[in-house]
Design a protein around this nucleic acid. Structure first.
Lengths: 214, 214
DNA sequence: ATGCCATGTGAAGGGCCTTTACATCAAAGC
DNA sequence: GCTTTGATGTAAAGGCCCTTCACATGGCAT
């Protein structure tokens, strides 16, 4: 008794029907909830265990330590992020320039609609050396931007280095997201939406690269 | 015994020569050290107290709680930041465009050379509502950028809105600083320096605003 | 000299992270 | 079917942290 009711009695045995059934995923889900409601610092291993209805020691059967769980949340976040960005880019349709704008907006949208993931990904200060999977997941997400930059560069007369272009786009979106696009309770407010701020910046920036304005 | 030797016996009585003398500042200094070596999350109130040679309860005579001390570090950080940025801007000398470049470089330099302050300012997640002084200090620092943007705008044919310009500069510098200009042990590495990345971005951006290139 | 208030102490309650020895349950092999 | 075995969970304990409270102390004003 006291399992959260996800035993799925009649169907999938939810992995390998054990004591809990699928504690690992339950813990990740609990962590996501807690991070979302109280920030990445407010989340505690013990409380995640309580949410899942197990003792405080149980999580150690599935994660090396608290950071290991956090890094798994972050990794999952980067995977979703990658999908999200890829959808927005949509292989450069209708045209690279417009698609890159969508990409930037998606970055901001992700930060706003998935604050828990975003926190784990960028604000939890997880060592990338101790969690190589996390680094790889982040790299894969960046690859979407990288590819977009490549195709956009190809449409520009000046043919700017695509890596530089990608880093500029990522940095700009990240800066605006970090500063202004968090629900962060007590953050600063703008005279314009983060999306408009980013779009304006991209417009000016691409103009500077010699885009034919539209 | 066991005070860190700053009694200044012969001179200023260091404020109001009390038990410790100036515990408040000693705690801030200790916090800065600890944040610098172990990140803002690694810093603990208790250890700061030990560093200062007092009991764990003593800090509560000077700070409401742990966050209150952190917010004071952050506030002090913003004040230094403001000075640092103002020096770099140097009232627009030799010319606004060059001075803005210095400003951006200063942003990155601060993030790199004062990681403890930077952490407290931007990564400690201190509620701005609970610490209005902190918000004000941040606003004052931003004002430097705001003023620089105003003067730079005046030199540009297109006369872009200076607030937008300031937000763009701040966001860009912040994004690059957050992603790449931290000693953060295990962070990502670039094919170019953060400074070069920022300078290139500013170059393109200003070109886009119709600057006469140089 | 006296009393007040700011400053510091020690102890205590409560919480968290993590480890260790122990229990239990599922599956696999005999 | 029964036993073995390894994965999974528990209870308890150590260590550290945050915060509060009652109490001590020492400067300063009167």
């Amino acid at each position: 008794m006291a399992w959260s009711g996800n035993k799925e009695d009649g169907e999938g045995k939810s992995r390998r029907g054990y004591h809990h059934g699928n504690l690992r995923e339950a813990l990740i889900a609990a962590a996501l909830d807690l991070i979302g409601s109280k920030g990445p610092a407010g989340f505690t291993f013990a409380e995640a265990a309580r949410s899942a209805g197990v003792s405080a020691a149980a999580p150690y059967r599935h994660f090396r330590d608290r950071d290991d769980l956090l890094s798994d949340v972050a990794r999952q976040g980067f995977e979703r992020f990658e999908q999200f960005l890829a959808n927005a880019w949509n292989e450069g349709r209708p045209d690279p320039r417009t698609a890159v704008n969508y990409l930037g907006k998606a970055y901001l949208a992700f930060a706003r609609t998935e604050p828990a993931y975003y926190s784990a990904m960028f604000e939890a200060n997880i060592s990338l050396d101790d969690h190589p999977e996390l680094r790889k997941a982040g790299d894969r997400a960046f690859e979407i931007v990288r590819k977009a930059a490549e195709e956009l560069s190809a449409t520009l007369p000046s043919r700017p280095p695509s890596l530089m272009l990608a880093l500029h786009i990522w940095s700009f979106a990240h800066g605006i997201a970090s500063l202004f696009a968090r629900g962060d309770s007590g953050r600063r407010n703008l005279p314009m939406s983060p999306e408009d701020l980013l779009e304006a910046a991209m417009l000016v920036y691409l103009e500077g690269l010699g885009s034919s304005s539209k």
